[in-house]
């Protein structure tokens, strides 16, 4: 089930390009651009927040409320 207004914010300055978010997203929401995550399939996102929780650098926020 997908939610329409899910937003994903990626803090590019904080990202160290480890690739964990890309590799372990259960819905393959991310693609890679030189190691950096880019959102390629937002509609698949289920708001599970695993990418945010597994990001060692606090560079990802999933959800609508806190995103500028």
């Amino acid at each position: 089930m997908t939610q329409k207004n899910i937003k994903i914010y990626i803090d590019e300055k904080a990202c160290k390009k480890c690739g964990l978010c890309i590799a372990f997203c259960p819905k393959k929401v991310y693609g890679s651009e030189g190691g950096k995550p880019v959102i390629v399939n937002l509609s698949a996102c289920t708001d599970c927040k695993l990418c945010e929780l597994r990001c060692p650098d606090y560079a990802i926020i999933v959800g609508g409320e806190n995103i500028e």
Binding site: A14, K16, K17, C18, L20, L53, P56, D57, Y58
Partner: peptide
């Protein structure tokens, strides 16, 4: 103090976040 000194993909940041 961020970003932290840990290497890319180091799990320490994940535990600290948890």
């Amino acid at each position: 103090k961020l970003p932290h000194i840990w290497c890319p993909g180091c799990g320490h940041g994940i535990i600290t976040g948890a």
